[in-house]
Every structure is written in C-alpha cells, then in structure tokens.
Amino acid sequence: MRDPSLFDYACRLGDDSLILGQRLSEWCGHAPMLEVDLSFANVGLDLIGQATHFLKLAGGAEGAGRDEDKLAFHRDVLDFKNCLLVEQPNGDFAQTMARQFLFSNYQELLFRQLCSSANLTIVAIAAKAVKEVAYHVRLANEWMVRLGDGTAESHARTVEGLDWMWRFADELFEVDSTVESLIASGVACDVRKLRSEWDARITKVLRDATLDVPKARRVTKGGRVGHHSEHLGHLLTEMQFLQRAYPDSQW
C-alpha cells in the first residue's frame, strides 16, 4: 500500500545515514593513525547498513518499484532529504569529529525512541542501530574531550570545527507537516522532545572538553525538503557517477 509520508520519513532517516557514511568513507587511508582509520570505517559501515535498510523501507512505501540502490543513485539533490549537518565537508579531523559528535548524540536519542515506533520495520532497524550508535557516541564524545582539552592547536581547531557545524544543529529538532501525521500515528519520533536531553549531553561533554557552547544563531535548514547546501551536489556527482553513466547495468 502506497504511503507517501512513510516514504518521505524513511528517506530522511536513510539519507542521513547514507550521506554521513559517504563522508566518513572519504577518510579511508588518510586518518591520523591507522587505528583511527579502522574506527571511521567501522562507523561508516554501520551507517551504510542503516541507510540500506531505511531506503529499502522507503522504496516499499513508495510502491513505484524503486529499490534502495535506485533511490541512492538516481535521485537528484531536490529529492534527497538528509539534514544539512551530514553533508558538510570533512575539513580537518576536528571538523569531522564535531559533526559526528552533534549528529551521533542526536541519532542515539532518536533511535531509542524509534524502538517503540508503530512501524515494525523501523523498530527492527532502530533496535540494532541503537547499539551501533551508542559506540559512535562514545567515540565522538571522547575525541571531543581529547581535542578540546589537548593542545592549544587542537583546542583552536575544535572551536572552529564546532562553529562550522553548529549552524546545522537546530534543523535536527524541527518537525514539519509531513512528520506531524506520522508522529500522531506513532510511526515517527517527535524530535522536538529530544532537544533538552541533547542539549544536556552536549553541554556536559563540551564542558569536559573545556569548550564553550557556541552561541545560538539563526537556523539554517532546508535539507528535509531538498534545499541543500552547495556540498551535496558534488557529493552525489561522485557517488552516483557509475550508475548514471551506465544506466541499465548490473553491478
């Protein structure tokens, strides 16, 4: 049965994981230490796995015969529904970690709620993902503290990185009309309710990291309705090239 709202929602969840997984895989072979390379790949693999499941669910909800690969490789920017945070460039290690820190803490709270979703597929995905993301949170939190309370250079870079990413935090906690109906039916999580716990977690870690919570500013958003930053287009160009250049091919 076609369910356009569920399609939209599952795309948001899947695209968040896919785009962030793609960003992390750019680090492969280039991390500051071999052990860190393995961590990034671990997180990336978890995210790509989540994306695959969510996009499969989305394809089913759309009912137009598109599977997870068709959705991943044949939508253009206007139809991608990831938040702006995950498509931000890696920058240096501090910028990457700042992105991971803000996002994974949000994702853990989100998945905990989705474990009681009215949609059983979402429950199944969330139940597995919540364990994976608990580890992502640990990694990111610990690195924020090491970098914030490390050397003067690492502190400065982390301030910069956090400042870059903070612009996109508010979007994570926005609800629009598409999601309202799903919240009412118990399928989706009301992310507004996650904000205060997220704030508390972030504040605590930043304090341990000797970092200030960046000051509030005007929300930058649009990802959920396909209005992305300039970065997504380039990312998709790279990601989708083979499937676009060789249509109707099996890989």
Partner: peptide, 8 residues
Amino acid sequence: EGAWVREA
C-alpha cells in the same frame, strides 16, 4: 597532517 591529532 595527523600530527596535531596524535599530539592532542
């Protein structure tokens, strides 16, 4: 480029 990370 990773030196500052390891040092931190």
